[in-house]
Design a protein around this nucleic acid. Structure first.
Length: 514
RNA sequence: GCCCCCAUCGUCUAGAGGCCUAGGACAACACCCUUUCACGGUGUAGACAGCGAUUCGAAUUCGCUUGGGGGUACCA
């Protein structure tokens, strides 16, 4: 009895502390793009993994715009980032447009926040003013390179006296503020080795002696990236930082700032990068890089997001086609691959065609319209347009493929391509078309009836030793100007008897002449 | 140069010392279906980078080599 009681108490105790643990550390993640370009597909993947992590852990997903570098920032890019993220379904809980308890969420609007903590670091001795000019710094670098030594800032300004500083200031020099790496490292760690436990890569470490005191505030008063990130993550109570592995070296610097400020250090997770097929960084010369470009090309955002999730992550049930919500339920950050992955179009294309097939006809009719602007859609009734979509969407890889798949539904005449022409020039084709004209005059032009009649028509020629596909090729070539395309019966039904006859006549005439 | 990370079919990956003569998906190829193209179906081919070490046993652990990637800014 006693034992049971003790167990019960222990259980309650553990339960209570665990509950507290979870409550205390609410999961808050963020995506922090810098608006110096449209939303990159790599950024989209990072955003997705943050989103998945937040969903899985009932956390918050924050969007923050990192525009401290005013020169590279543009309003247009910010809009593109918003729109792309939304299109992908990666909706944020807090952000520049919707606000939140820790705003503002745009760094340029937070410039008045940063100096306060710079002062704190200065006061604590973890930062110092640096009066070095770009030329002096450049000279240091050259010197290091000449001696084949790794470049580390000389700390020349670390121990400037007040008089020296006053003198420099009098000369008109404006100081930048540098973070004192070794001082912070010594204050919080036993050796110069700084280590942290990465969510995806495990233990990561660096020798801080090789880091060099970096600038946290530029001489013009603007914060640098590494500094602003820490202040924002701290103030926004970010619990987990999930980002590309190109940030690993920044992480060490940032950890030290967190510690120097006495702030709680978030957990970090670094994802492998997305590479182009030639194993270099995915860039413009490899084709599309921005989400919006992919969308313009005719990729569905559902396919994009599903595909990008599979770069580094795999479903536990092997089912690769999966909506984001299901991926989130199955997502574990520590199961994400820590190696880089190559962006190949093959699978994306397959996935896109798969998602196109999952669309309903009404959805397709809408989504396809932007790619049909070169045609006059009013030539078709709504029923005809519906039927056209029904018989043409299956082979589509991209939505934009529809453009070249349907020209023969529009206009009086068709252009006859080389292969079709060759077919039409055969005796068989001429014979088939002649018979077709003779018989079809009396046909009732509904798809149902056409189906029956054409079947009989093929059967008639089959008995004469002409393959069904050859029979159909003749008609197809004459009516559509090509040898492949959608279901022939439906095509005839859609374009109608008059147009069919007109085209068959034209084709016979044209090929006879040549 | 220096520092860090990574390494399974062409690509994305499964694989936590015996379940692996390494599984799946895309791509490729072949065949089937079919009025064409496609879809779909059924198959075929295809990988543990190399070398050492630990172990009765290694894709899985350790070391080295090689290859790839990233970083090294008063860019983010």
């Amino acid at each position: 009895m006693k034992i049971i009681f003790a167990h019960a108490i222990l259980f309650v105790l553990i339960y209570e502390t665990r509950k507290k643990d979870i409550e205390m550390s609410e999961v808050r993640v963020r995506i922090a793009p810098s608006p110096s370009g449209n939303l990159h597909i790599g950024t989209a993947r990072t955003a997705l993994f943050n989103y998945l992590f937040a969903k899985k852990n009932n956390g918050k997903f924050v969007l923050r715009i990192e525009d401290t570098d005013a020169e590279r920032t543009s309003q247009e890019y910010i809009k593109n980032i918003f729109d792309s993220l939304k299109a992908l379904g990666l909706n944020w809980d807090e952000g520049p447009d919707i606000g939140g308890p820790y705003g503002p969420y745009t760094q340029s609007e937070r410039f008045d926040i940063y100096p306060k903590y710079v002062q704190e670091l200065l006061d604590k001795g973890f930062a110092y003013e640096c009066f070095c000019t770009p030329e002096e710094l450049e000279a240091e670098k050259e010197e290091a390179q000449k001696n084949k030594k790794p470049y580390v800032y000389s700390k020349k300004c670390e121990n400037l006296t007040e008089e020296e500083k006053a003198k420099l200031r009098a000369e008109g020099r404006k100081p930048a503020i540098r973070f004192n790496i070794s001082k912070a490292q010594k204050a919080f760690h036993d050796s110069s080795i700084l280590e942290f436990d990465d969510l995806v890569k495990g233990k990561l470490h660096v020798d801080t002696d090789l880091l060099g005191d970096f600038v946290i505030m530029k001489s013009n008063g603007a914060p640098t990236y590494n500094y602003a990130v820490v202040i924002d993550d701290m103030l926004m109570k970010i619990s987990h930082v999930i980002r590309g592995e190109d940030h690993i070296s920044n992480t060490f610097k940032q950890i030290l700032i967190f510690e120097a400020l006495g702030a709680e250090v978030p957990r970090f997770g670094h994802l492998g990068m997305i590479l182009a097929p030639d194993r270099s960084k995915l860039s413009k010369r490899h084709g599309a890089t921005a989400v919006s470009e992919f969308v313009e090309k005719g990729y569905l955002t559902e396919a994009l997001i599903n595909f990008v999730a599979l770069l580094g992550w795999s479903p536990s049930d092997g089912q690769e086609i999966k909506p984001v919500e299901e991926i989130a339920a199955d997502f574990r950050i520590n199961e994400v691959s820590s190696s880089n992955s190559i962006f190949e179009y093959d699978k994306l294309n397959w996935m896109n065609s798969h998602y196109i097939k999952m669309l309903s006809i009404p959805e397709l009719k809408e989504k396809l319209k932007p790619y049909l602007t070169k045609y006059d859609l009013t030539e078709l009734t709504d029923a005809q347009y519906t039927r056209m979509v029904e018989i043409t969407y299956e082979p589509l890889t991209l939505l934009s493929d529809i453009t070249d798949a349907v020209p023969y539904f529009f206009g009086e005449d068709v252009e006859i391509d080389e292969r079709a022409k060759e077919t039409l020039e055969t005796e068989t084709a001429q014979e088939v078309l002649k018979t077709f004209m003779d018989q079809a005059v009396d046909w009732d032009w509904t798809e149902e009836n056409l189906h029956e009649k054409l079947e009989a028509f093929r059967g008639y020629y089959k008995e004469k030793g002409i393959k069904p596909k050859v029979t159909m090729w003749a008609i197809r070539a004459a009516v559509t100007g090509r040898l492949c395309g959608a279901d022939m019966t439906a095509i005839l039904a859609i374009i109608g008897k008059d147009k069919t006859f007109h085209r068959v006549k034209a084709a016979m005439k044209q090929t006879l002449q040549s």
